[in-house]
Amino acid sequence: MLRTRIRPQLSLPALAVALSFAYGSAAAVELDPKAISIKLPDQINWVANPSGSESAVLVGDPNKPGLYVVLNKWKAHHNSKPHSHPNDRFITVISGTWWVGTGTDYDPEHLQPVSAGSFVTHYGNEIHYDGAKDEDTILQIVGIGPATSTPAPAK
Rank of each mutant, 00 (worst) to 15 (best):
M1F: 11
L2W: 02
R5C: 08
I6Y: 13
R7W: 11
Q9W: 06
S11K: 10
S11M: 06
P13Q: 11
S20G: 04
A22T: 11
Y23R: 10
Y23M: 07
A27S: 05
V29F: 05
E30D: 10
A35C: 07
I38K: 03
P41F: 05
I44C: 11
W46R: 00
V47G: 00
V47L: 07
A48D: 14
N49R: 14
N49I: 02
P50Q: 14
G52L: 04
G52Q: 07
V57W: 07
L58F: 05
V59D: 04
D61R: 02
D61A: 11
P62R: 07
N63K: 15
K64W: 03
G66S: 10
G66K: 14
L67R: 13
L71W: 07
L71T: 01
N72G: 01
K75C: 05
A76K: 15
K81I: 10
P82C: 04
H85N: 14
P86I: 08
F90Y: 15
I91K: 00
I91D: 01
G96F: 04
T97L: 00
W98N: 13
G101W: 07
T102Q: 13
G103I: 09
D105F: 07
Y106H: 13
P108T: 08
P108N: 06
E109F: 02
S115H: 09
A116T: 09
G117S: 09
G117V: 03
S118L: 01
F119V: 07
F119Y: 10
F119K: 05
Y123N: 05
I127V: 14
H128R: 08
H128V: 10
K133W: 03
D136K: 04
Q140F: 01
I141F: 04
G145V: 03
P151M: 11
